[in-house]
Design a protein around this nucleic acid. Structure first.
Lengths: 232, 232
DNA sequence: GTGTACATATCGCAT
DNA sequence: ATGCGATGTGTACAC
């Protein structure tokens, strides 16, 4: 573990070889070395994504330039355990800064799929009157079904929960249904695709597979779950 | 378009609301503002991924702190066209630097799926003797089939190309086959799943669907395509 | 370690 | 804009 984050602005050339090979010709770029060992090389665009990088765990060594690298002042070689290699040839440094950081108190999130699943499991009436919760994360050999319900008439119902409903989610639920329907204890399991927004293609595919769709209003559901929220 | 990239190390608190809501309590962090408008807030770990960010297009305004923010020196508000909002309250600046960049000459990649597809289309013998290329990116209503071949016996063969063969790729090919087989001009199209590595689950699913698998050796194929490469 | 699914995924291309 | 597929996806979690 390094102590400091290093921020370097330098003219550099970069070569990566690993899952693919990639090359960056000489140009001025921002290079960040984090305390977890991660190295990233940024242009002034591409949002937060670097042009090239090495993820930890990896190890960096610095060597002097070879004789055929006239303008290079130093070469960084970053190697990962899987054999990925990042070579950074540095020829001119414009800015160089190191800074110590404490452990970050961390990010608090709200509104991800897990929260949606919790709220739906606690409010099964969303799926129709009389539906009862059997289990969340009901296990199948190819992955867990988000929510398993039982309809008033006794039929099991598998619910796939997504923030945004797209084709892949319908495919996922279809695989679960195929498997569960082979289990005589479950019988002819019904499928429900629940999401905050459902794209037309996903809706069409679901209809074609006999899967019904439920649109979820996250804020309303949270309100049902905790009416005091409405005061704010 | 801003002129400079700004690198700021500061104690800050961050609130994001958009696709989800997220909160970061006060701590020292690295803040980068790129010339494309992107803002990212980094801890000293998590590889190249920021704790919080705003992607362009977005607009940043800076305002003075409210009276109930005693230690705050300034507040950045970053808003995107879709209504996503990032609030950064800055209370102590440790480092602040701006640097101008030129347009980056850009990244050259080799070994991505497109190259694999090119090589396979140019070397149809990989699929068996006598196979001929009908079309690359053969269009269907739900997306293009990577390669369409014709077998020596006249049967059409749809090839899905992946660098790494996983279940999703088999599902994708299955959807294409379902659709193509409805077209009387194509008839009973065969399916081939071609990848550099194929995971056991994907292989099993493919077998279950009557799809055959072809392992591709990228380097050998490139050698076939351009024998001069072997000299290097 | 493998398999599976989520992510503020991001990114690029075609319609 | 939306849809669709690729990504050096990265990351967490279960088996």
């Amino acid at each position: 573990m390094l102590n400091d984050v290093r921020i370097l602005i330098a003219k550099c050339q970069v070569d990566y070889s690993g899952r693919l090979t990639a090359h960056l010709p000489y140009a001025k770029r921002l290079i960040i070395v984090k305390t977890d060992g991660a190295v990233s090389i940024h242009a002034d665009d591409r949002a937060y994504k670097p042009l090239n990088w090495m993820s930890p765990p990896c190890r960096m060594t610095v060597r002097a330039p070879e004789s055929d690298e006239p303008d290079v002042t130093e070469v960084w070689e970053v190697v990962s355990a899987t054999g990925d290699r990042l070579l950074i040839a540095i020829s001119e440094i414009f800015h160089d800064h190191e800074e110590a950081f404490e452990t970050d108190p961390g990010l608090e999130k709200d509104g991800v799929e897990a929260h949606l699943q919790e709220l739906l499991a606690a409010n099964t009436a969303v799926f129709g009157a009389g539906y009862t919760l059997v289990q969340r994360e009901y296990p199948t050999p190819i992955g867990p079904v988000d929510i398993l319900l039982r309809a008033p008439n006794g039929r099991y119902t598998a619910v796939e929960v997504k923030r945004r409903g797209e084709i892949a989610g319908v495919e996922q639920l279809t695989r679960y249904l195929d498997l569960m329907r082979r289990d005589p204890l479950l019988g002819d399991v019904a499928g429900v695709f629940a999401a905050q927004v459902i794209k037309p293609q996903a809706r069409t595919l679901a209809a074609d597979r006999g899967i019904s769709c439920v649109l979820v209003d996250y804020d309303a559901l949270r309100g049902l779950d905790d009416p005091s929220d409405r005061l704010f």
